[in-house]
């Protein structure tokens, strides 16, 4: 019993990290149709900036927001310098631009920070919480809480605010959005800023558990992308469910079947789900341009 509970807690911890990363993909996709492969780098920028500031003696309560701001600024820069000038490039070209940007950002972090692995203390210490024979790190609660707060804020923002509706309108038909008076440029700008901020926040919250280094973004993007697609791209609920699902599948496979093939289990489940539900668990039926 305590065994099962431990596996669940492990899956939820890891799943919350995947969910937080996956949520970052949502806004940019909603506004532009682009899955941003530099999203993992936003996560690392958040983690590395926080780690560097904390190492300098800055209290975490100041370092964390600064790290999120740093990520946000990089997101805006990515939009202004790379995505906006590309204009109406084919979608696949835009995706390649984000891949180029991720390589570029990795290079910058390697120079600005270093190549070491970094970590800082959990916000509420590193002493495990125990109940019913299983354990959980207090930082896991921060990550789980963080991903739910981001999810709720995102769902509200997209569904109930003027700016959020503008982002959705921009995605479904940019020309029509312009006609009805939506500032599509501002909507895109906002979506990149927020997505990057969400990514950096995920990094700030997760680093005490996952650790971070300049090149950790590839794995983050890979896991986050998997969670996004399992849930259905563009859906905040999908990102959340997809993240937790993958975390739990990995933990259960490691616990009950074979730790060697826990990552394989996650991909097999993704493939099976997509065979039955080609738009993911929560995806909308839309036609995409490629």
């Amino acid at each position: 019993m305590s065994e099962l509970l431990q596996f669940v807690l492990s899956g939820v911890t890891v799943g919350a990290i995947y969910a937080a990363v996956a949520l970052g993909f949502t806004l940019i996709y909603n506004a532009s149709g682009v899955v941003n492969f530099a999203q993992g780098e936003f996560v690392v920028i958040g983690g590395m900036t926080a780690a560097a500031l904390i190492a300098l003696g800055v209290p975490v309560i100041i370092a964390a927001p600064l790290a999120v701001i740093a990520g946000t600024l990089v997101g805006i820069a990515l939009y202004r310098l790379a995505i906006k000038p590309a204009g109406k490039a084919p979608l696949v070209s835009l995706v390649i631009i984000t891949i180029g940007a991720s390589i570029f950002l990795r290079g910058v972090m390697q120079v600005v920070f270093d190549k070491q692995i970094h970590r800082y203390e959990g916000f509420s210490g590193d002493d495990a919480l125990r109940f019913l024979g299983a354990t959980l790190l207090p930082q896991s609660l921060w990550i789980i809480g963080g991903s739910f707060v981001v999810f709720a804020a995102l769902a509200w923002f997209i569904g109930h605010t003027h700016a959020g509706r503008g982002i959705r309108a921009t995605a479904s038909n940019r020309f029509a959005a312009v006609l009805v008076g939506i500032n599509t440029g501002r909507a895109m700008n906002l979506s990149f800023a927020l997505s990057a901020g969400i990514g950096a926040l995920a990094g700030v919250l997760a680093t005490p558990v996952t650790f971070t280094s300049y090149d950790a973004g590839v794995l983050m993007a890979l896991k986050g992308f998997s969670a996004t697609m399992l849930g259905g791209v563009g859906s905040p609920a999908g990102a959340l469910v997809g993240g937790f699902a993958i975390g739990l599948i990995e933990a259960m496979t490691a616990g009950y079947i074979s730790s060697d093939y826990k990552d394989a289990a996650a991909f097999i489940v993704i493939l099976l789900v997509l065979f039955v539900m080609p738009q993911g668990l929560f995806g909308r039926r839309t036609t995409e341009r490629v």
Binding site: A82, P85, I99, G100, R106, G107, V111
Partner: peptide
């Protein structure tokens, strides 16, 4: 060497921005 990734990523972005279809 130290700046390889920066240049490589930069070239990719710049090329795709300037020549959208390749």
């Amino acid at each position: 060497a130290e700046y390889e990734h920066i240049v490589l990523g930069g070239v990719m972005v710049a090329t795709m921005v300037a020549m959208r279809r390749g």
